[in-house]
């Protein structure tokens, strides 16, 4: 029971050995003298001097250099294509438009010549988008995802990105450079192993 109630992650805690404050004048005097001659000020001086000599500068000169960004980072959206046919993944189901909590996706669909549903209009208002990732999570086709492009400043509050702008260009597909998104809505690794066949009958 003792072990269950102990919520400390490790039991290596110990109390710091802090001496009591001196109460007598002589005690205070002794503390002042001890602190004065302990040379802590020079330790501080040495530390900053050491860092200056080492010159181990950590500044990232931002517009010229950029930090690598994590693959799960949620920045401006991208529309992916199918690897095999290079066709657009989006099936125009409208789930992303429905789920978007800031109502910033507007889309329209039509029936194309093969009687398939096709996206005719698709815009995201980046001025409203809060980059929550719900659209990427809800998309059944892994079509809408987030990309790594975070430099989307604009002169206006309203700042739109359209379907053509988000879609992976065809040249990138031929070079095989399309990157899958690893964040919200992505397939977890080893997903295949967990797939079960639907039984024919119960």
């Amino acid at each position: 029971m003792e072990a269950f109630n102990d919520r400390n992650v490790s039991n290596g805690y110990y109390k710091l050995d802090i001496e009591d404050y001196p109460t007598t004048a002589w005690g205070k005097f002794k503390r002042v003298v001890r602190r004065t001659f302990r040379g802590e000020l020079f330790v501080g001086l040495w530390v900053v001097m050491r860092e200056m000599i080492k010159f181990d500068v950590h500044t990232v000169q931002y517009p010229l250099e950029k930090m690598p960004i994590g693959p799960r980072y949620r920045a401006v959206h991208e529309m992916k294509r199918l690897w095999e046919s290079e066709a657009e993944r989006c099936i125009g189901c409208g789930l992303c438009e429905k789920i978007c909590i800031s109502n910033c996706i507007q889309m329209d669909t039509k029936i194309d010549e093969n009687s398939r549903k096709e996206v005719s209009e698709y815009t995201i208002n980046l001025g409203r988008c809060i980059f929550c990732g719900y659209c990427a999570e809800v998309c059944p086709e892994l079509a809408i995802t987030h990309g790594g492009e975070y430099e989307n400043g604009s002169e206006q509050r309203e700042h739109y990105i359209d379907y053509a702008g988000m879609l992976t260009p065809l040249e990138m597909m031929t070079q095989g450079k399309q990157q899958e998104f690893e964040g919200f809505g992505a397939i977890t690794p080893h997903e295949d192993a967990g797939v079960k066949k639907t039984p024919l009958s119960y």
């Binding site: 001097m49 860092e51 181990d56 500044t59 000169q61």
Partner: peptide
């Protein structure tokens, strides 16, 4: 500059 170097920054560049 000196403060920046001591704090591992670059200072004005």
């Amino acid at each position: 500059k000196i403060l920046a170097f001591m704090q591992r920054r670059l200072g004005p560049m």
